[in-house]
Amino acid sequence: MRLKQLAAAVLGWCVLVGVAQAVGTTAGTSVANQAQVSYVLAGVPGNSTSNTTTFLVAEVLDLNVTLVSSTVTVSAGDTNRTLLFTLTNTGNGTEVFPVALDNLVAGDDFDPLAASTAVYFDTDGSGDLSVADVAYAAGINDPALAPDATVAVLLVNDIPAGLADGLIGRSRLLASAATGTGTPGVSFAGQGAGGTDAVVGANGAQANATGEYQLSEAQVTLSKSATVAGSGSSIAPTPGASITYQIVVNVAGSASATGLILTDAIPAGTTFTAGSLQLNGIALTDAADADVGEFQGGATPSVRVALGDLTQTAGPQTVAFTVTIN
């Protein structure tokens, strides 16, 4: 009582703040009470004290598992893709919490493949798998958490090959109190801190959270067409006629195609028409300069257009150039 009185006398305001703690009084704490009485009997003051009642606070088995990662964007065939979770002891005694991974989550499009070692502690707090992170081994280094303590856990999965853009696969982290789980209120006699009973908390002394991987792929397609323009009335591909080639580049899917470069060889027996290179109808110079296009001469001449990073929303990109038949 002395502590509480002091706190109340000095900083009554802080007592309220202390009350807001989620965990509550630590398991095994002894709570005592003693009353006193004063009186006057035949003009003589007297006083006496009561017996002291004492009880021990039992242990509540409670925990929380929270997903930290937002949806992880992956490509088919990726390896060691991580999901970050936190596990918090919301009970009032130090407790051991075995954890497990579950990839057979209903309602998703594919099952991620657990890596050979699929559960790690995010020991260095990087939020991602790194050399310093300690692998979890069930029954060997199950996390023992003091009340209110938290540990960061990583699930590590591979993504199956051949999956289409947009598909979702889920992976779940399960954790439970080692002392026992069950219906809230069920107790385990003598198994709590300090020999008290352990009582299953509101969530059944088990918790889980589910993370999500989503495929993000980009498909690049090209279509090439040719238009022959003859001299005079002739439109046959005869010497002297010109051919305009048009190449349409399309990007589909949710991902971005990065660093796209289109190169096309000038067909044998033809000559590139200087200044004919265009992107989306806008002329590009033949020289290797500030614009994205160039004509490369030599033994095997070609045109080259650096399209850069493209997404589906950029729409089709049309490259055109003209040659003359020798």
């Binding site: 009582m1 009185q5 965990v23 509550g24 009084t25 709570v31 009470n33 003693q34 009353a35 006193q36 009485v37 004063s38 009186y39 006057v40 009997l41 035949a42 007297g46 009561s50 009642t53 009880f55 606070v57 039992a58 242990e59 509540v60 009032n92 107790s187 008290t196 009973d197 009582v199």
Partner: peptide, 30 residues
């Protein structure tokens, strides 16, 4: 068996065990 959030009812009883009435009886409980 008690866990955080549980309510305890404390009952104090004061019995006069002498043969005279006690006046100004004050019970204190922290």
């Amino acid at each position: 068996k008690i866990v955080p959030g549980n309510e305890v009812i404390y009952t104090v009883s004061a019995t006069n065990i002498c043969d005279q009435a006690a006046e100004h009886v004050v019970i204190d409980n922290p």
